[in-house]
């Protein structure tokens, strides 16, 4: 029950952050908030027993994503323009979508229901938990599933990351620094050349 309470509090906190992001005009603050959001999310994942997910979310959501967002902000601008009127159409779409989703949750197994079909499926969930030690032989079931049972998905995931790099490379490219920008760097280069000559 404490667990449930913690999650509820944290989730409510997330909602507050999310609305903060909607309303704030300062993009820098929004980015920082989304970093906090990810960190909170990681905490929730820990409580939900998804330690690997939490780990990743902390590293990616709070770490790398924030750095990229900050990088993009320094290259563009920090303030969001004041929007003249609220977008009621978007509000309608979102409300409908949300209502549909909530309607769908009504038949979901309750949170933490160990007997749900998803958690009891003999060939998936239970197979991984019961047989992976014999079949794969490593303690972390998530890694077993990730790298062996569903290794093909992970291959796809790796390719996605690779694609993103190709995409960003093709868009931004690696532009060479001009020398005068960093005299110290220049000195180092020379030093290195000398070393090679020696």
């Amino acid at each position: 029950m404490t667990e449930q309470l913690v999650i509820m509090v944290l989730l409510s906190f997330l909602v507050v952050i999310a609305f903060g992001i909607i309303l704030l005009k300062d993009l820098l603050v929004a980015v920082i908030l989304s970093g906090i959001y990810s960190l909170t999310a990681a905490a929730i994942f820990v409580v939900m027993d998804a330690v690997d997910v939490a780990f990743t979310e902390a590293a990616v959501g709070a770490g790398v994503s924030t750095i990229f967002l900050l990088g993009a902000l320094t290259l563009t601008r920090r303030q969001q323009k004041q929007q003249k009127h609220n977008n009621y159409f978007a509000l309608l779409v979102v409300t409908l979508t949300g209502a549909l989703l909530i309607y769908g949750t009504l038949d979901l197994p309750g949170y933490g229901d160990g007997q749900s079909i998803a958690n009891q499926h003999p060939q998936l969930a239970q197979h991984f938990l019961q047989k992976s030690e014999d079949e794969i032989g490593i303690p972390n079931v998530v890694t077993s599933v990730l790298a062996s049972y569903r290794g093909y998905d992970t291959l796809g995931e790796t390719v996605v990351v690779f694609t993103a790099a190709i995409g960003v490379l093709s868009l931004l490219g690696l532009r060479r620094r001009k020398r005068e920008e960093d005299p110290e760097l220049d000195a180092k280069r020379q030093c290195r050349q000398q070393n090679e000559e020696v």
């Binding site: 769908g104 038949d107 079909i117 958690n119 499926h121 060939q123």
Partner: peptide, 29 residues
Amino acid sequence: FLYAATGTLNMIGLAESIPNVSDSRTVLV
């Protein structure tokens, strides 16, 4: 949602399970 309703991700598995839960609002959504 499909996974929640059927516990599987395989298309054939889903095809077999969906008739059992076809009244569920989860599958509808």
